[in-house]
Simulated scan of single mutants.
Amino acid sequence: MVILYIIAGFFSVLIGGWLFTNAMEYISHRYGVGASFVGAVLSPILTSLPELMVFLVAFLIYGGVSGEDVAVGTVIGEPFVVSTIVYPMIFIIAIIGFYLRYRSDVVLEVDKVLVTPFIVVVVFFPTVLLPAFINSLQVRLVIAVLLLAIYLSYIYIMRAKQGLAIEDYEGLYVLRIVRISRLWEWLLLMIQLAVSVALLFMGSRAMVAGIIELSRSSMLDVMGLSIIIVPTATVLPESITAAIWTLRGRDTMAVAALIGEKVLYSTVYPAIALIVTRWSLSIEALISVIVVEAISSAMLYHVVRGRLTWDVAVMGLLGYVIYILILIHRI
């Protein structure tokens, strides 16, 4: 029954995120927002909603120590999952695209504008560890305000560097089912948004319930389990977006969507968690932050050069294996 809860939540969050992202991309397309801004700022905000829903459900509905551990584990775990699982997947997609002749090579050629989000992650993500060692509400509030200010500055910088608007948009999904006057498209847009938010909420609640119950029955650490399970499920929307852009050879857009997500989870969401939770981190959380920093630093070096190679994917997989081994050893 517990496994069914997690599986049901997984698919509900996936479908909800898919519909929500499509609706938001439709809005972005209509207003002509630049491609780099969409990839590094707008897309991460939209596709991170599944994780935000999990965080809010865990903290507000379940509460207590277990609920907070799932909430904090989700915030810490998303950058970890992107760094260790999603980046290797992107390189696999690049190989597939090369053999299908959608791409000319298997190296990701990226614009150096992405140096900015990588610097934000490398410099500021480790600050989330400080409040765990200094038990002070004042310290948590100061760091939270700092992280929010950093993210607002980041938006300003990326907005100034935005590229051309996306032209080859596939259209609002609901319009494929219902034909309606262009004057009433907004109504269908609102319906798709409402359905997607409902799916995100229900799926998030089911996943949190399943994770807490699974941890209790298997004696696993709640935070350690949530770091790998919840983000693995909820990171799928941005992963799918990045995979499509990689297949088409739009490497900057693909990497921007992923590093933009990590920026959001290095600043805004930790800031929220620092304010509303006790922010107690387990050894698993500490290890995940170290892994994210190592991989992000290596990727920053490659982005400065304008191209990402396979060594970052290998580092990611190695970091994931080390984390799993430590988690199993602590059972």
Rank of each mutant, 00 (worst) to 15 (best):
residue 2 V to I: 15
residue 3 I to H: 09
residue 4 L to Y: 05
residue 5 Y to W: 05
residue 10 F to E: 10
residue 12 S to A: 12
residue 14 L to P: 04
residue 16 G to M: 00
residue 17 G to T: 00
residue 18 W to L: 13
residue 20 F to V: 11
residue 20 F to H: 13
residue 21 T to P: 07
residue 25 E to H: 02
residue 26 Y to R: 13
residue 27 I to M: 01
residue 27 I to Q: 04
residue 36 S to Q: 08
residue 37 F to H: 01
residue 37 F to L: 08
residue 41 V to P: 15
residue 44 P to K: 01
residue 45 I to C: 11
residue 46 L to W: 00
residue 52 L to F: 09
residue 53 M to W: 00
residue 53 M to K: 02
residue 54 V to N: 06
residue 54 V to E: 06
residue 56 L to E: 05
residue 56 L to V: 15
residue 56 L to G: 15
residue 58 A to K: 03
residue 58 A to T: 00
residue 58 A to H: 04
residue 68 E to F: 04
residue 73 G to W: 04
residue 80 F to W: 11
residue 83 S to F: 02
residue 89 M to N: 05
residue 90 I to D: 12
residue 91 F to V: 05
residue 92 I to V: 15
residue 96 I to A: 06
residue 98 F to I: 03
residue 99 Y to M: 02
residue 101 R to L: 06
residue 102 Y to K: 14
residue 105 D to L: 01
residue 109 E to N: 09
residue 114 L to S: 11
residue 121 V to W: 01
residue 121 V to S: 05
residue 122 V to H: 05
residue 123 V to Q: 09
residue 125 F to V: 12
residue 125 F to I: 12
residue 127 T to S: 08
residue 132 A to D: 05
residue 134 I to Y: 05
residue 135 N to D: 09
residue 138 Q to K: 15
residue 142 V to L: 14
residue 144 A to G: 14
residue 145 V to A: 15
residue 145 V to H: 15
residue 147 L to M: 08
residue 148 L to G: 04
residue 150 I to P: 05
residue 156 Y to F: 13
residue 159 R to C: 03
residue 162 Q to L: 01
residue 163 G to E: 06
residue 164 L to F: 09
residue 168 D to N: 13
residue 169 Y to T: 07
residue 172 L to K: 13
residue 177 I to F: 13
residue 180 I to M: 06
residue 186 W to H: 11
residue 186 W to I: 14
residue 188 L to F: 01
residue 192 Q to C: 13
residue 192 Q to L: 14
residue 195 V to G: 15
residue 198 A to K: 07
residue 203 G to D: 07
residue 204 S to G: 15
residue 209 A to E: 04
residue 211 I to P: 02
residue 216 R to K: 14
residue 216 R to H: 09
residue 218 S to M: 13
residue 219 M to Q: 09
residue 220 L to I: 02
residue 222 V to F: 08
residue 223 M to H: 12
residue 232 T to Q: 11
residue 233 A to P: 03
residue 235 V to N: 06
residue 236 L to C: 11
residue 237 P to K: 03
residue 239 S to M: 09
residue 239 S to D: 03
residue 241 T to S: 04
residue 245 W to A: 14
residue 245 W to S: 14
residue 250 R to D: 08
residue 251 D to H: 10
residue 253 M to G: 03
residue 253 M to A: 10
residue 254 A to M: 03
residue 254 A to G: 11
residue 255 V to D: 13
residue 259 I to M: 10
residue 260 G to S: 01
residue 264 L to G: 13
residue 265 Y to S: 10
residue 265 Y to W: 07
residue 267 T to H: 06
residue 270 P to L: 12
residue 272 I to G: 07
residue 272 I to F: 03
residue 276 V to P: 00
residue 278 R to V: 02
residue 281 L to T: 05
residue 286 L to S: 12
residue 287 I to Q: 12
residue 292 V to N: 01
residue 295 I to T: 04
residue 295 I to M: 02
residue 295 I to S: 03
residue 299 M to W: 08
residue 302 H to P: 09
residue 306 G to N: 00
residue 306 G to H: 04
residue 311 D to L: 11
residue 311 D to A: 10
residue 315 M to S: 02
residue 316 G to F: 07
residue 316 G to C: 02
residue 316 G to I: 00
residue 318 L to E: 00
residue 320 Y to H: 07
residue 322 I to A: 00
residue 326 I to Q: 09
residue 327 L to I: 01
residue 328 I to M: 10
residue 329 H to L: 05
residue 329 H to S: 12
residue 329 H to M: 10
